[in-house]
Amino acid sequence: MLNLHALRLFHTIASVGSVTKASEWLNISQPAITAQIKKFEKELGLPLFKPQGRGIALTDAGEELAVLAKRLFAVEHQIEQFASNYASGTVGSIRMAATYLPANFLIPAWIAKFKQKYNQVEMNITTTNSSGALQQLLDVEVDIAIFGGIAERYPETIQTEELFEDELWFVVAPGHRYANRQVTLSEMMNEPFVMREEGSSTRERLFSLCRTHNASVPTISLQFNGLHEAITAVIAGYGANFVSSLVVREYVERGELARVYVEGIHLKNTIAICTRRNEPLPASAMNLVRMIRSLPTPPPGHT
């Protein structure tokens, strides 16, 4: 097996040009260095140095070995740098699942800010519903999951950290008879709804709300996989939607949508980071979480 310690001594002598300088550089006595180099030459069966004036010079074999040693220790430095960067989170990868709300309205700005500092970190983001995001986290397919509307129940193995809350609004087209009016929950539930698919946390919140208040569940007349499509259908004049204010506030301000105020209903929507409990995050993912925590909390209804 190659004596790497002796090779390093040889590399240092070859780099600085003398045993004396190598001794000072390494803080090892000259006799000790000389003895180890002679032993190394014997192990290799090759003369590495030859006398030259008052000093020494590399033999032909020593010249070639010096090139190889330089490459080897350059790679060693790269490995050390990589390990340091990986441990600090400046390189690596982050696997993230996100529900549609944060994926479309929060994460793009977060990632842009994160990448300004950690450009070499690879990002792999999957957009799915709450059930899908939770399952990917449980199956160790992702490191973190960002929820817009955390599930009411989740396994004990999942740790949840709430970032902030926004409001949940009922919205309709501006020409709808309930636009900007106050109605009862029963009246609201008589309207056809345009919603996301089953597994959406907001959809589940709406059904849970009906159960809590003993109201009939709404008819989901149109169902889409994305938020944008559902909102566009309501803007076009069909049905109602129950949705985060983060998503629709600008539409309401522009007059493309209108709120419906349902008596006694003031619900909040939680934006949260979920991780696997008692399992340390990769340094790169931890840096992202710290950055998200440091960002200002949006006011209710604002992006």
Rank of each mutant, 00 (worst) to 15 (best):
T99A: 08
A112N: 04
Q116S: 07
V262R: 07
D60M: 01
P300A: 10
F170M: 05
E41P: 12
E187Q: 15
N27F: 00
V262P: 07
S216A: 15
Q52T: 03
V183A: 11
L295V: 08
N119R: 09
E204A: 15
L72Q: 06
T34H: 05
V262S: 07
N104E: 15
L134A: 09
N278L: 09
R71T: 11
S244L: 06
L138R: 05
A74Q: 13
E141D: 14
F207S: 02
E24Y: 07
I107Q: 01
H77N: 13
F164G: 06
I150R: 07
A233S: 13
I146L: 15
I56W: 02
T157W: 02
L134K: 08
E76P: 00
E253R: 14
E250C: 00
S84F: 05
V247I: 15
L168P: 01
T160S: 13
K38L: 09
P47K: 15
L288T: 04
M189G: 08
E64V: 10
P174V: 06
L222E: 15
E64P: 00
E156N: 14
F10D: 09
L106M: 13
L44C: 13
F207A: 03
N124R: 12
F114Q: 03
T160N: 10
A173R: 03
F224N: 13
K42F: 10
L26E: 08
M195F: 08
G149Y: 04
N225D: 13
F82N: 09
N119T: 06
Q116M: 07
I235L: 00
P155V: 09
L295S: 06
Y238R: 07
T232I: 07
E197V: 10
R249G: 10
A83F: 03
A179G: 09
E191T: 04
L288A: 03
V140I: 04
A22K: 09
E24D: 13
T126F: 06
I94A: 05
S15T: 15
R153H: 14
S131Y: 10
N180A: 14
E122A: 14
V183M: 12
N241I: 05
A283D: 09
A97S: 15
L101Y: 00
V142T: 15
Q159F: 05
N3Q: 08
P47E: 15
G45R: 11
T232G: 00
F170K: 04
G55L: 01
L68N: 03
T157D: 12
G199E: 04
S93V: 13
E122V: 13
G237Q: 08
R203D: 00
V19A: 08
F105T: 12
S216E: 14
S208C: 00
W169E: 01
R203Y: 00
L206H: 06
M1I: 12
V243D: 05
